Amino acid sequence: MLSLANSAYMAFYLYLIMLLIQWMVATFSKTSQPNAIPGKMNEDLSHDSFVFRAHRTFHNTLENSALFIGTVLFAFSINYQSIVFAIAVWTYLVARVIHMALYYAIATEKNPSPRSYFFLIAVAANAVMLVMVGVRLL
């Protein structure tokens, strides 16, 4: 059984599963469209299209993955184990899953949209993780 501090490993694993699912949803929703061209998104699509939202959900996750993956792997490499760090990793994961679900479900051009709040929660959780690793290095 994993301790709460070690559960960061499980949250990271689930994050990678989420990333795979987002890739599959984006890929298969796009390729199911008539006249789909690999590597090219129809410029006429917007938030009213699930294909657009699935594509943007996946790409938004990719845009945020470098910092998250880097921070978590750096923490793992220095064997940093903390309950607060694990909670931050889980918070990031849950916020990204809710962001994904809202992006899939709500077609809106409104800013901020409901998904924006979960995007910001994930960014804040990532900032907390980064600061915690930095403090550990001091």
Rank of each mutant, 00 (worst) to 15 (best):
V72L: 14
E43K: 14
F119S: 06
G70D: 14
M10R: 08
F119K: 03
V51N: 11
L102T: 01
H55P: 01
H59Q: 13
V25G: 00
A36N: 11
A101H: 01
Q22E: 07
Y9F: 08
R96Q: 12
G39M: 06
A11M: 01
F118C: 01
M41K: 02
S113N: 10
I78G: 12
Y13C: 00
G39R: 10
N111K: 13
S46D: 14
V97I: 14
N60V: 06
K30I: 06
A54D: 09
M41W: 09
D48Y: 07
I21V: 03
K40Y: 10
V97A: 07
N60S: 11
K110A: 13
A95P: 09
M18Y: 01
A107K: 08
L14T: 04
F58L: 13
F74G: 06
K40D: 01
S65M: 15
I87W: 07
L62Y: 15
T27H: 02
F118M: 11
S116K: 05
A101W: 09
A95S: 11
M41D: 06
H99V: 00
S82E: 06
L67R: 14
S113E: 12
D44H: 12
E43D: 12
I98R: 08
L120C: 04
Q33V: 08
F58R: 11
P114C: 01
